[in-house]
């Protein structure tokens, strides 16, 4: 996708258009950011439920959980953490560029962010494929399970699929929104009308990173010992 840029746009001030229900632009910016933070709280509690399940399973069946956790692809998970941390950096780049009215740079940063997100998904897909190959998909009836006598280990692996799957859904949603937003944001004059949307989306993206930073140690790391 080639960004369509106009040099006139750079001359327009970086700003937002006031919506009918607000009185001032500062109020509108504040409300939009506030709204996203509220949404992120709900997302955190959503993932919190799955992490609680993992913790309770560890309390109830420590040996089985450890046995199951060593079957997770530790280094793929670690590489994916690196990928997401880098994508947070490029997202910060997009936000800072948008504040300075550097539209071309911003669009490039957003595309880089989307690219890194896609790398994460590809690695994740490969990880799932390896899990399938190694018979670590206990929720599939037709596929024999690698640890047939350790029932409790199934529960942990299934929770792993639920948590990483839910995270994956969030990432796919994030990339989809990012692509649409990039397309819109590459139009002339966008930054003088909707600059704050980049920041709002950025919060969501950083949050996807944040969730992974909690999910990775909870599932892959602390259960190895």
């Amino acid at each position: 996708m080639r960004p369509v840029l106009s040099y006139v746009a750079a001359a327009l001030p970086v700003d937002i258009a006031l919506e009918e229900q607000f009185t001032t632009k500062a109020q509108q910016r504040h409300a939009a950011k506030f709204g996203m933070w509220c949404w992120l709280i709900t997302e955190l509690l959503l993932f919190g439920g799955l992490l609680l399940v993992a913790t309770v399973l560890r309390v109830l069946h420590p040996a089985s959980v450890s046995a199951a956790a060593t079957h997770l692809k530790f280094w793929i998970g670690a590489s994916n953490t690196v990928v997401l941390i880098c994508s947070s950096l490029t997202m910060s780049g997009a936000i800072n560029a948008s504040r300075l009215g550097l539209q071309t740079l911003m669009v490039r940063c957003m595309l880089a962010t989307g690219g890194l997100g896609s790398v994460f998904l590809l690695l994740k897909a490969y990880e799932y494929y390896r899990d399938y190959q190694e018979h670590m998909v206990p929720f599939l009836d037709w596929r024999p399970y690698a640890l047939p006598h350790d029932h409790a280990s199934r529960l942990f692996i299934n929770d792993y699929f639920a948590a990483t799957g839910l995270h994956g859904v969030h990432l796919i949603t994030g990339i989809a929104i990012l692509l649409v937003l990039t397309r819109q944001a590459s139009r002339a004059g966008y930054l003088s009308l909707h600059q704050n949307r980049i920041e709002i989306f950025g919060l969501y993206w950083h949050f996807i990173d944040l969730v992974w930073i909690i999910v990775f140690p909870t599932l892959y790391l602390v259960n190895r010992g």
Binding site: L60, H61, P138, F139, H151, R154, L155, N158, F161, A162
Partner: peptide, 15 residues
């Protein structure tokens, strides 16, 4: 998920 795939997290038979 439990109903569709039998993930077992709430199933006492699997622990």
């Amino acid at each position: 998920l439990e109903r569709a795939f039998g993930i077992g997290i709430f199933d006492p038979a699997l622990g």
